[in-house]
Amino acid sequence: MYEFNYRRASSVSDAVASSGQSDDASYLAGGMTLIPVLKFRLASPSDIIDLAGLGELKGIRTENGAVVVGAMTTHAEVAGSSEVRQPIPALADLAESIGDPQVRNRGTIGGSIANADPAADYPAAVVGLGATVHTNSRTIGADDFFTDMFETALEPGELVTAVSFPVPDRAAYMKFPNPASRYAIVGVMVSQSGEEVRVAVTGAGGSVFRVPEMEQALAVNFAPEAVAGISVSADGLNEDIHASPEYRAHLVTVMARRAVAAAG
């Protein structure tokens, strides 16, 4: 790691102010991605602003029928929360599928979505469940939040404070993990809320994306067979030593169909 200045923020406004005063600050949430990145010397922030002390960013509450997850809530907390599992079991299951127990004990939802790893699970939840991202200065709709690989709509210094998930009628997440990293090669979140159906795919492309053709078919008939014949184009999908674009495209259909079946 390159050397940096470390400080703990005392409040959200303190964190944002510190960030504004720094040459090049990084917020530190759970650190499950940032610390490995620093260890590989792939980033050299002048300042690390640790958000661990910000109680206001922690915890899960129900608000206006939505499940609101504080940005510093860990994956383990989301997976183990009856306030999540009872209304949105798909979200608890997704959190349970992230990384390993030690990663889930440290990693946070805010850190995950701000990092916007194309193979991370949470982007599928945010987009697939039509969530709203709350920051220190505004709210951002799910479809506007993830802009590209490792890119989000967040402005420099802007801090995610919470993610608000509306409760769907039904939803499920199916993940085909990378055998080594256990990130998603393909992960598909499917949800239905009244007339609206969302199918969000992570892992397959440069950023999480929706599959309108599947959504339309499911809006007519929310059944596995409705998506069985629909495939996404392999063009532009990710390619690595574990999976070709063609295989990823195939898995999108399989995982979507299984997610619909699991959503019941």
Partner: peptide, 15 residues
């Protein structure tokens, strides 16, 4: 009280 990977935690975070 929770298991963590101490290679992915800053010493300062454990203050």
């Amino acid at each position: 009280g929770q298991s963590v990977k101490s290679c992915t935690v800053l010493a300062a975070q454990a203050d």
